[in-house]
Write a protein that binds this DNA or RNA. Structure first.
Lengths: 138, 138
DNA sequence: CGGGCATAGGTGCATATACACCTATGCCAT
DNA sequence: ATGGCATAGGTGTATATGCACCTATGCCCG
């Protein structure tokens, strides 16, 4: 079985599924003007409050510099601010603005729709289990 | 349950898992100088033979222009050639070179290692099932 | 206090991804 | 033949992602 010359690549299969799922969420969030990556960052900020870039990256399991760049569109649109930390000026504290909170609130119903549609098709616990296994396997 | 204010985002969870899995495969393939995306393209070409860009994109379930750009690093390193079609000069036929076949052969054992390591941790059928469900759900 | 290491972050580069728009060419109907 | 539509592909722009390398600053130790 795993001797098949055309054995499917587990990684490529998952990448493809993720492309499809991301397109689905992005389409759902489009009326709110957010992508799912941006929505996720706003959700983290809403939960955590002002937080340095590195810690925000760690929360999202993103590379530090990736988070830095992913904040750019949100900064440009005034949904978050990034200011030097008062205690340690090396730190850059990321904080949601009022506009950011508004965008998050406006987007949340669309996100819930997408969640409901997807979770009706696949058990989210299964996805969670797969994700957990993959993350701990690496 | 789905009323939790901090309900996890199925999409973000899957994106995170895919980032981790991709990093794992990319690290495994590093000695062969390929990324998993590039390895996947070479595998498609090996299976299909010379093929127009659009059809190759369809096989990989990638957007046409994405495939066009993903071919750039492979072209630059001489692993594939892209030539105008003889019958229809609008078409660009993508073909593996000898160097491409060599790179694919050299990379395959590393890919098998990664597959074996991952498939020992999670049932690939489960991943397939999740992927199928997500792709058909969109 | 001064040197050295640790920590926070940014920049340059490369790849991956997709949409909107453009060009070139084939093909068909009149 | 030609005008118009369909098809194949490329380009511009934007976001997402991560590595290598750089700067700036804190902090500790002698």
């Amino acid at each position: 079985m795993s001797e098949s010359p055309n054995e499917p690549c587990t990684c490529s299969a998952l990448r493809r599924a993720t492309r499809a799922l991301t397109a689905c969420y992005d389409a759902a969030l489009k009326p709110a003007g957010l992508r799912v990556t941006q929505f996720a960052i706003l959700r983290h900020l809403d939960r955590l409050g002002p937080i340095p870039v590195s810690r925000l990256a760690a929360e999202a399991a993103l590379e530090r510099t990736t988070m830095g760049r992913n904040l750019d569109p949100l900064k440009r649109r005034g949904l978050v601010t990034v200011t030097p930390g008062a205690l340690d000026p090396r730190e850059r504290l990321v904080a949601m603005t009022e506009a950011g909170r508004g965008a998050l609130a406006a987007a949340t119903p669309y996100w819930r729709d997408a969640q409901a549609r997807i979770n009706a098709r696949i058990d989210p616990a299964t996805v969670s289990a797969v994700a957990e296994a993959l993350i701990s396997a690496t």
